[in-house]
């Protein structure tokens, strides 16, 4: 790691002020950022720690929504009785991120802001039609995620929370890449007031995406048999863990499993 200063932020306004310094960067759980720094893939001048900001740590279930603060850890989401009752698929997704030590530190804000193409939370945000709360205002998940590791946020802006509308039913099915425990392909399906949504992570070179052909088919008949054949392999990720064709095939398989589990 290159040298940097470290500072704990006490509030969102504290953090935003500190992030005005040139090349300052936020850190939350550090579960992605610290390995990145060790590989010298980033050289921030200062890290501003968001993980202790009280106003980013709450979970509220009210008015048909589950609102989770940006600094809430994966374990806290997994354990929260209100989340488990309102959107069990979301609690289960959080319970299967990485391993316990990763879940005790990693946060929803860090995961959503990072937008790793194989991360779990972005598919829940897109698959439930969530609203991302940020220092730059509220944004629909559909506008927020802008391709691999890219979001609508600029440097110095932070994710302060995420609000998920409570669906009629939902499920997340993840085909685990066993070495990293990330999703080789993960599919989040929901049916609710906003219709049927199918969001896919791990598969596309453009990051998390909605599989609209499946959404349309499932809107007519919500059953695993309605899931269309695998999407085109064009633009899917190909690496040592799986070819684009394999990933495309998994998109259809995991969608069927998710619909069945709904």
């Amino acid at each position: 790691m290159y040298a940097f200063d470290y500072q704990k932020a006490g509030s969102v306004s504290d953090a935003l002020a500190a992030l005005k310094a040139e090349d300052a960067q936020p850190i939350s759980g550090g579960q992605t950022l610290i390995p990145t720094l060790k590989a010298r893939l980033a050289a921030p001048s200062a890290l501003i720690d968001l993980s202790g900001i009280a106003e980013m740590k709450g979970i509220e279930v009210a008015g048909g929504m589950v609102k989770i603060g940006g600094a809430v850890t994966h374990q806290s989401v997994a354990d929260h009785a209100g989340v488990k009752a309102a959107i069990p698929a979301l609690a289960q997704l959080a319970a299967h991120i990485g391993d316990p030590a990763v879940r005790h530190k990693g946060t929803i804000g860090g995961s959503v802001a990072n937008n790793d193409p194989s991360a779990c939370y972005p598919s829940a945000c897109l698959g439930l039609g969530a609203t991302i709360h940020s220092s730059a205002g509220d944004m629909a998940a559909d506008e927020f995620f802008q391709g691999m590791f890219a979001t609508a946020l600029d440097a110095g802006q932070i994710v302060t929370g995420v609000s998920f509308p409570i669906p009629e039913k939902a499920a997340y099915m993840k085909f685990v890449q066993p070495a990293s425990r990330f999703a080789l392909v993960g599919v989040f399906v929901s049916k609710g007031a906003g219709g049927v949504r199918v969001a896919v992570t791990g598969a596309s070179e453009s990051g998390v995406f909605r599989w609209t052909a499946a959404e349309d088919a499932l809107a007519g008949n919500f059953s695993p048999d309605s899931v269309p054949p695998a999407p085109a392999a064009d633009g899917m990720i190909g690496d040592i863990h799986g070819s684009p064709e394999y990933r495309a095939h998994l998109v259809a398989v995991m969608t069927k499993r998710a619909v069945k589990a709904c």
Partner: peptide, 16 residues
């Protein structure tokens, strides 16, 4: 364990 929960000490800053 940090404040009663397991964490990877190679993936946390001492200052944190």
């Amino acid at each position: 364990h940090v404040d009663g929960e397991s964490v990877k000490a190679c993936n946390m800053l001492a200052a944190a």
